[in-house]
């Protein structure tokens, strides 16, 4: 494993399986009387959130605390950051506090990359979502969830070879889509991105996936359908005018009962949250047995524990892991 986790592309096939298998073992902790391990005792994990995301922050916080790390939550809201303190000065402060890992959520694409490579801090950097770039732990928890649902109760050592994953929605602005395409490709899955042409980035032909404008054409062959959040503001002129109306979006790209009926029996429905019920996903679909939305949240903690354990334990000199 690299010292940092910034992108879905940072993980080799072996690294990704190591994280998923480790998370699988750590998931057992939930059934134990004491849901805590002493592994990261005396180490400090800083949650550095320049953007509101309670879900992701508490997931990382729970993960770090279950490994006995000291957790410092640093939210940009109401702090010196909102008073104009730079990313650099914030980083220097964290360094002075002895952060072993910095979990960073930032509105600017590449901010975690800057944090990791500018020499401002020595600790490991975990990207918890940067701008419209990446969100690698979300991709890991998605892959973990797919593996559990599709590969059986003991999916250890298995990848997603041959699985067909259809990701639907605002790919252009989605960090979840980028990380998932990269990681799922590494794990052998075949990914198809489905969106109106306005919401697919220029240059997507070079991504390791296929694209389609037609959701209905993809459903029957999908093992997984992942719906991305689509912000209603995107249809306004100020928001870019990417599609004409919520109604039209929902009709062409929303997952409703009619479309779910076309899916194979074993297929699952995922959503990284937060959902726009009635927009990209119908309420009855979100709450159905196919939906993994609640599991994804639970799995997020196990996966983030695995990431923190693998990044923080181990010597700094010896980073090579054979698996």
């Amino acid at each position: 494993m690299n010292r940092h986790l910034l992108s879905g592309a940072d993980l080799s096939h072996a690294d990704a399986l190591l994280v998923l298998d480790t998370a699988e073992e750590l998931a057992q902790l939930a059934d134990r009387p004491i849901k805590k391990l002493p592994t990261l005792r005396g180490r400090t994990v800083v949650n550095l959130f320049f953007e509101d995301s309670t879900r992701t922050r508490i997931s990382f916080e729970a993960a770090a605390k279950r490994l006995s790390a000291d957790v410092i939550n640093f939210s940009a809201k109401g702090s010196s950051v909102s008073k104009g303190e730079s990313l650099k000065d914030t980083a220097l402060t964290l360094e002075a506090m002895g952060a072993d890992a910095v979990v960073v959520r930032h509105h600017a694409s590449g901010a975690p990359h800057r944090l990791a490579h500018s020499g401002w801090i020595r600790g490991s950097v975990v990207n918890a979502g940067d701008g419209t770039h990446e969100h690698p732990t979300q991709a890991l928890l998605d892959a973990f969830t797919m593996r559990r649902r599709l590969n059986g109760d003991r999916p250890l050592g298995t990848d997603l070879t041959g699985r067909r994953v259809t990701i639907v929605g605002d790919v252009l602005h989605s960090r979840v889509a980028r990380s998932n395409v990269l990681l799922l490709h590494t794990l052998g899955a075949e990914v198809t991105l489905v969106a109106p042409p306005t919401l697919l980035p220029v240059g997507i032909d070079a991504w390791p996936c296929t694209t389609s404008y037609d959701l209905d054409g993809e459903l029957a062959k999908s093992d997984v359908v992942m719906m991305l959040r689509v912000q209603r503001e995107r249809m306004t002129t100020e928001g870019g005018g990417f599609f004409p109306s919520a109604r039209e979006y929902s009709r062409r790209y929303g997952l409703d009962r009619r479309r779910v009926a076309v899916l194979p029996d074993h297929a699952i429905v995922m959503h990284p949250g937060p959902m726009n019920r009635g927009m990209e996903i119908a309420a009855e679909v979100a709450d159905s047995a196919r939906s993994t939305i609640v599991e994804q949240v639970t799995n997020g903690v196990s996966v983030r524990m695995a990431v923190l354990y693998l990044l923080l334990s181990g010597s700094t000199e010896i980073t090579e892991v054979t698996a």
Binding site: L18, D21, L37, T39, S315, I318, E320, V321
Partner: peptide
């Protein structure tokens, strides 16, 4: 009983895959 997460030498050695408990 896997003891990996309880070892006192975690910082000295490369991170290891967990065994099954």
């Amino acid at each position: 009983l896997d003891v990996t997460m309880y070892r006192d030498d975690l910082r000295l050695r490369p991170a290891r895959a967990l065994e099954h408990t």
